[in-house]
Design a protein around this nucleic acid. Structure first.
Length: 455
RNA sequence: GGCCACGUGGCGGAGUGGUUACGCAGAGGUCUGCAAAACCUCGUACCCCGGUUCAAUUCCGGGCGUGGCCUCCA
């Protein structure tokens, strides 16, 4: 089985060849922890978790290193902390904790490492110093700026020409910049802001340098895969490339760049002003989206229904369908012990640039076979666990926040069966209608009557 | 204004130069006291206009629509 991935750098699918099969290395841009993560933030977390799982399967669990950073120094954090009158540490720790809980609830494995900017300051300062020494950056009015004109390759990821960008003329024109496109590596902090001592005075890092420094620190100069949302291609990833390759004499930072597509909500851009901004926490724990709570695995299944590079429309209908599917699988697999290995068809579909819709076609085929075959049930159970989609829940577990009085249901069923025994079918049908009204569906099987909650 | 994606049957969503994706919903059937589940059967889709081709949903050009980036937002 060979893994193929779409490389944004080349704009084509390429066979994946790791630098070192004994240590496959992936870096994904994590959150800036100033507010709860929204459902759009969940997409890269889920997508690259699936890739992480696949890589672990191919190369072995101990031979894959996955780094997802936490950015805990940033101007929006400073602003939000001031606004809420809490300390920066309090804000970033609290937000990071919720983020990690959300990620776990969505069925993601923890990354190998989750480094923080505040723990990477010596490396950040060292990398900036190297860039200055290499004549790729300059000091101006307490700032250190990357000298874009020194980078003949600048724009290779986003495929934009410097001249075009300047012509766009929406760049900040600061008088101390040599070139309008030059971006900040280090900026001065006043007494009210977090700051670190550096050769350029007390200050803090610019937006992009932290990822370059954390990547180098934990994965080396060149690693295999760098991932993130498509909106990060420019300027964030472009600037990361400029910084890292500027510090490493042109040696590439990553061989493969992967970007997930954008997310919309009910056909519209998600924004606070439109009132359709939805956080992961709200979906999981509050009855806000469709006035229901949603199980993390339902959200995960819904997210993976669309190929990661396609735009995805986050709708109520999508979540309902995902829940229906998951509940069906749960009825089939609740008591089943997993097989040793996941399905080969699923692995093959996954290996084609994470074609998760194809994966689902394979899963549905397996589910059809699993209805009559125990081996297929065990295989399906194992495959869904491998994907992080199912962990042995009962079907009703996916109806979060809905409660049914089981004793009352059992009582109605008993009365109905008594009526059926005396062929009083009118009464039996009346009792069924009562159950239906409660949201309960019943099935008369060979082993007696079973019931389930309708979704 | 510049650059870039996407537009598939009621819905979701892969894929392909000529042959059934798949799922949900829906219709018919077997089964059932009635149902449900299960199983069987059913949809001849690919934004518009040109072009290339024996043949285009699939390639090329234009248009329309939606969205993204260019304003430290995944």
């Amino acid at each position: 089985m060979s893994l193929t991935i779409y490389n944004t750098l080349a704009r084509e699918k390429q066979p994946f060849k790791p630098i070192d099969p004994k240590n496959v290395r992936m870096y994904v841009c994590g959150p800036t922890v100033y507010d709860f993560a929204h459902i759009g933030n969940a997409r890269p977390v889920i997508v690259f978790d699936v890739l992480f799982r696949l890589l672990r399967h191919i190369y072995g669990e101990k031979h894959v290193t996955y780094v997802r950073n936490i950015t805990d120094v940033e101007d929006k954090i400073i602003a939000r902390a001031a606004e809420r009158k809490v300390s920066i540490r309090e804000l970033t720790e609290g937000t990071a904790k919720v983020y990690q809980e959300d990620a776990l609830a969505l069925g993601n494995l923890p990354p190998t490492l989750e480094p923080r900017v505040t723990d990477t300051m010596p490396e950040i300062i060292a990398m900036i110093a190297t860039l200055v020494k290499n004549n790729r950056a300059y000091v101006a009015e307490g700032h250190v700026l990357f000298d874009v004109a020194s980078d003949t390759d600048y724009g290779k990821l986003s495929r934009r020409a410097l001249d075009d960008m300047i012509a766009g003329a929406r760049v900040e024109v600061a008088p101390y910049k040599k070139n309008p496109m030059d971006f900040v590596l280090w900026k001065p902090s006043d007494a009210t802001m977090p700051g670190w001592d550096s050769p350029w005075g007390n200050g803090r890092p610019g937006w992009h340098i932290e990822c370059s420094a954390m990547g180098e620190k934990h994965l080396g100069e060149t690693f295999d895969i760098h991932g993130g949302g498509i909106d990060l291609i420019f300027p964030h990833h472009e600037n990361e490339i400029a910084q890292s390759e500027g510090a490493h004499h042109g040696r590439p930072i990553a061989n493969y760049w992967m970007h997930n597509g954008f997310l919309q909500v009910e056909g519209e851009k998600m924004s606070k002003s439109l009132g359709n901004f939805i956080t992961i926490r709200e979906l999981l724990a509050e009855k806000k989206f469709g006035a229901e709570q949603w199980h993390g695995r339902v959200l995960r299944l819904a997210m993976l229904g669309t190929h990661y590079r396609q735009p995805i429309d986050w709708t109520l209908d999508r979540l309902t369908q995902a829940r229906t599917t998951l509940m069906e699988w749960a009825r089939l697999l609740h008591d089943v012990q997993p097989a040793d290995d996941p399905s080969g068809d699923v692995l093959a579909a996954l290996s084609d640039d994470l074609n998760t819709p194809s994966v689902f076609a394979a899963l549905h085929g397996l589910a059809a076979a699993a209805r009559t075959n125990a081996d297929d049930r065990r295989r399906l159970r194992r495959t869904l666990a491998f994907l992080g989609l199912y962990g042995g829940e009962k079907d009703v577990d996916f109806l979060v926040g809905q409660t049914i009085d089981a004793a009352a249901v059992e009582d109605l069923i008993a009365r109905r069966n008594a009526a059926r025994k005396t062929k009083n079918f009118a009464e039996a049908d009346r009792l069924r209608a009562e159950l239906t009204a409660m949201g309960v569906a019943i099935e008369d099987g060979a082993a007696g009557t079973t019931w389930k909650v309708m979704s």
